[in-house]
Design a protein around this nucleic acid. Structure first.
Length: 491
RNA sequence: CGGGGUGUAGCGCAGUCCGGUUAGCGCACCUGGUUUGGGACCAGGGGGUCGGGAGUUCGAAUCUCUCCACCCCGACCA
């Protein structure tokens, strides 16, 4: 048991907070609501970025960069968009400070007021569509498929490391298309990429679906989402992809000449995932001993701990371990040989467990005599002694197994915590006693959705794309329902 | 932004009610030694604007006012 780490069963959110701190992922900063992502946490984010970036480029996207600041007037050009974001915008009003005439420090120079105030981007649709206007004249200029890796600011009242911070890192893709169909296909392609990434790299199973009107992105016609289930039974929206129709093209007057010689507004999509994925990763797999990382995203995949009495012993062990390290690296496995002498092996074992390192090798004099290595896997906390010869191949296989095992475990957990219900009584009791995802019929109205939210605090996470499509009657109103939708309490 | 709680060494805390030596303990850190197969032990040592500011007082970590930060629960949200 990790010293000082609160058990999940005692206080889940405290467990999360302590884990983020103790595993050296992130910490609160001097700026309210803003986090410092520490090197170990950032290394995981970099691994996510690398893979996503590769997937974006494989599907024909290019990276670009747009400004941090957005003129205030841009935001208000799309009515729903400004409505959605206005309440959480940071605003730049001045461009200069001066010495405080009354004494120490500096004050805002009232002489230096901006003619037009600037919004710190909460998202970049407006500045990008203002720019795209200049890039697009003809259907030959389309499609445009840009992505940017950036920070955004949404002035949240209550924040939690990774899950909701006032500033966060993300990528936002913004595409422009000649046809509605193509824009819809792009929107769907990207949500599929997010789902693939979540499942194959993060080992987090997700439900793909469409958001209801209430939960839709401000300015979108349709929002596709991937929803993941955390160990406390709450849902986490982990990625979204929006079909924007011609809303932003109309707001920013972006027209193009069609093949037929007509003029038409451009069709748009946008899509993003953020450092919130870190929260999903942490809460999906980790246990009371600490972080559990999927091998594909672990900054250190293998930690090697030497066990020795004398310097001579260490030298002998190091000689053997160097070969193992070289062989592992040849296979593209990231490995850390921890020969620091200021910690005992037991401390190191606990530390690498806390940090979620998938595989730990221990090598002592006993192993040198027997030609063996002790192999411990983080996900099951089991240990085996194997031959040192060929341990690199053994570890390579094991890493794949761990990736698969933790995905399967998360999938089983979700299956167990997904409950179809037929009545509102059942809905409430399942939500109360079991939590998790609830599949229920819904009459399709915002009123019913709102009522259910008020009475139970559960929201419609999405209308799933896959699964049971049979019709029924709404659990709340008794009116006809086309298919079951996914309810849960959410982060 | 409402309700509750907490701010004392890098971390975790005691001391605050009832003001009074030099502000203390555990972990961490430094030095030396013994250790090393699941969070080692002994000895010595360093480290403090007691969250900030203002006030009361001969004297404030302690009392008063005020501001700030963080945590939990709500409302809001990726």
């Amino acid at each position: 048991m990790a010293k000082g780490l609160t058990k999940r069963s005692v206080d889940y959110s405290q467990w999360y907070n302590e884990l983020v701190a103790k595993a050296d992922l992130a910490e609160n900063s001097a700026v309210r609501g803003c986090m410092v992502i520490k090197p170990y946490g950032y290394a995981i984010w970099e691994k996510m970025q690398q893979e996503l970036d590769r997937m974006f480029k494989e599907t024909g996207h290019e990276n670009a960069y747009f400004p941090l600041f957005i003129p205030k007037s841009f935001l208000s050009k799309e009515a729903d968009h400004v409505e959605g974001f206005a309440k959480e915008c940071a605003v730049v009003t001045h461009y200069r400070l001066k010495n405080d005439p009354d004494g120490k420090g500096v004050v805002v120079d009232p002489e230096a007021k901006l003619e037009e105030e600037l919004i710190v981007r909460p998202t970049s649709e407006t500045i990008i569509w203002n720019t795209y206007k200049n890039w697009i004249q003809s259907y030959r200029d389309l499609p445009i498929k840009c992505n940017q890796w950036a920070n955004v600011v949404r002035w949240e009242m209550r924040t939690r490391l990774f899950l909701r911070t006032a500033e966060f890192l993300w990528q936002e893709g913004h595409t422009a298309h000649a046809t509605k169909q193509e824009a819809i296909e792009e929107t769907q392609t990207m949500i599929q990429i997010y789902a693939d990434f979540a499942q194959n790299f993060m080992a987090v199973p997700v439900v793909q679906g469409v958001k209801t009107a209430n939960e839709r992105f401000a300015g979108a016609l349709d929002t596709y989402t991937i929803e993941a289930l955390m160990q406390d039974g709450k849902a986490l929206q982990s990625g979204t992809s929006h079909f924007l129709g011609q809303n932003f093209a109309k707001a920013f007057d972006v027209k193009f000449a069609t093949k037929e010689g007509n003029e038409d507004y451009v069709w748009a999509s946008s899509w993003g995932v953020s450092t919130r994925l870190m929260g999903a990763l942490i809460m999906a797999h980790s246990d009371d001993h600490g972080l559990v990382l999927p091998p594909k995203l672990a900054p250190i995949q293998v930690a090697i701990v030497p066990i020795y009495r004398s310097e001579e012993d260490l030298a002998k062990i190091t000689e053997k371990v160097d070969v193992v390290v070289a062989n592992l690296k040849k296979r593209g496995i990231s490995v850390k040989f921890d020969d620091s002498d200021n910690r005992k092996p037991g401390w190191k074992f606990a530390q690498y467990e806390l940090k979620g390192v998938p595989v730990r090798l221990a090598v002592g004099m006993r192993d040198l005599e027997n030609g063996t290595v002790e192999v411990a896997r983080r996900d099951t906390l089991t240990k085996e002694v194997v031959n040192m010869d060929g341990v690199d191949e053994y570890v390579a296989d094991l890493l794949e197994q761990i990736q698969e095992t933790i995905y399967q475990k998360a999938l089983d957990f979700r299956a167990e915590k997904t409950t179809p219900v037929e009545t509102f009584e059942e809905f409430k009791s399942v939500l109360e006693e079991k939590g998790g995802f609830i599949l229920a019929h819904w009459d399709g109205t915002s009123e019913t959705e709102q009522k259910i939210k008020e009475e139970t605090k559960a929201t419609i996470r999405c209308i799933p794309l896959e699964g049971d499509k049979t019709s029924g009657v709404c659990v709340y109103s008794g009116k006809p329902s086309e298919q079951r939708v996914l309810f849960a309490k959410a982060y």
